[in-house]
Simulated scan of single mutants.
Amino acid sequence: MDETSPPPSPAGPKPRSPRTPKGLRAVARAAGVSTATVSRAINRPEVVSEELRTRIAAVIEHLGWVPDGAARALVTRRSGTVGAVFPTLIQGDFARAANALQRELLGEGHTLLMACSDYDPELEFRQVRIFAERGVDGLILVGGTHHPDLVRLLERLALPVVNTFVFDPANPGRTVGPDNRRALFDLTSYLIGLGHRRFGVIAQSTRNNDRAAERLAGIRDALGAHGLATRPAHHAEGLSGIAEARALFRRIMAAEPRPTAILCGNAYLAVGAELEALAMGLAVPGDLSIVGYDDIEIMSELPVPITTVRVAGDEIGRRAARCLLARILGRPDADGHECPAEIVVRASSGPPPA
Rank of each mutant, 00 (worst) to 15 (best):
I219D: 10
A132I: 11
R231Y: 05
R152K: 15
D186Q: 13
P169Y: 05
A334Q: 11
G135C: 09
A95P: 05
A71D: 08
I56H: 07
A213I: 04
P6N: 12
R134G: 13
A95L: 13
K22C: 00
W65Q: 12
E297Y: 06
D333R: 12
F249D: 03
A267H: 02
I202T: 09
G143D: 01
A98P: 04
P8F: 14
L106P: 00
F167Y: 15
E50M: 09
L223P: 08
T145G: 00
G83W: 13
A71M: 08
G218S: 11
R211H: 07
P18Q: 11
L89T: 06
V309S: 02
G138V: 06
T76R: 10
S117V: 08
R181T: 02
A183K: 01
L141G: 07
A71R: 12
M114E: 00
R77C: 02
M280Y: 02
V151T: 14
A95N: 04
G177N: 07
S205L: 09
V142I: 09
A30I: 03
P332N: 08
M280P: 03
A341H: 02
A229Q: 13
L150N: 04
A347K: 08
A254F: 06
I290T: 06
A212Q: 11
T206A: 12
E338R: 07
I42S: 03
V59T: 11
A57E: 14
R152Y: 00
V176K: 05
I42N: 08
G313E: 00
G138I: 07
H146V: 04
A31N: 10
H147N: 12
A71C: 04
P352Y: 04
T145K: 00
G241P: 10
E338W: 00
A100W: 04
W65R: 15
D314E: 10
F249R: 09
L194K: 07
V82E: 05
A26R: 15
G32D: 10
G83S: 10
D186I: 02
S289T: 11
G193K: 07
E214A: 15
A28R: 14
D179A: 05
I56V: 13
G109V: 11
P172M: 06
R310M: 04
D295I: 06
P18S: 13
I298N: 00
V38N: 09
S348R: 06
I56S: 10
I56Q: 11
P87Y: 10
P232Q: 11
H235K: 08
A236W: 03
A28L: 11
S39M: 03
L89V: 10
P353T: 03
I306Y: 00
A31K: 10
A233I: 03
N163V: 00
H196T: 08
P285V: 06
S9E: 14
A222R: 09
S5R: 14
C339P: 00
I60L: 15
A217F: 06
R181I: 00
R134N: 10
T37P: 07
A158L: 06
I316D: 00
G92N: 14
P10I: 13
G193W: 05
M280Q: 15
G138E: 10
T111H: 14
T20Y: 03
V128P: 05
S289M: 05
R19F: 09
S5A: 15
A217T: 11
F86Q: 05
N180G: 03
A222P: 11
P305Y: 01
